[in-house]
């Protein structure tokens, strides 16, 4: 199934059910157990609770089932590439910045357009 979306074998590692902790009957993906620097790690999940142990590393993406007009991945790719381009030292700070930016735009009633243009670490 994974192979149908990863025809070019771009995905390095695959972690399955046994890597997930069950807590109060909810699954939790504990990022601290991956063996990667948390300042350089981002998780994308449609359920925020899945990364509640490291909420500052997470991006929640809209749950998707069959809406073919959905372009969340397109927008997300843009932001993730910007983080790389800016050579962000601590991704968690960038995500906090983006969250705040989004909040402000929503409050003002603006269209949400996220960019790290004015982000300084």
């Amino acid at each position: 199934m994974l192979d149908s979306i990863d025809t070019d074998r771009l995905i390095f590692h695959r972690l399955y059910r046994q890597h997930i902790q069950i807590e109060n009957f909810r699954s939790v993906k504990d990022l601290s157990k991956l063996g990667r620097d948390l300042t350089k790690l981002i998780i994308v999940d449609n359920i925020a609770e899945n990364f509640k142990l490291q909420p500052e590393n997470g991006i929640v993406i809209k749950t998707w089932r069959d809406d073919m007009r959905d372009n969340a991945l397109l927008e997300l790719a843009q932001i993730l590439l910007e983080i790389v381009k800016k050579r962000v030292k601590d991704v968690r700070k960038a995500l906090v910045y983006l969250r705040e930016l989004m909040k402000r735009q929503v409050v003002r009633g603006d269209n949400v357009s996220l960019t790290l243009d004015n982000f300084v670490e």
Partner: peptide, 8 residues
């Protein structure tokens, strides 16, 4: 990015 799939 080093891509990792983490799925339940």
């Amino acid at each position: 990015y080093e891509l990792v799939i983490f799925t339940a």
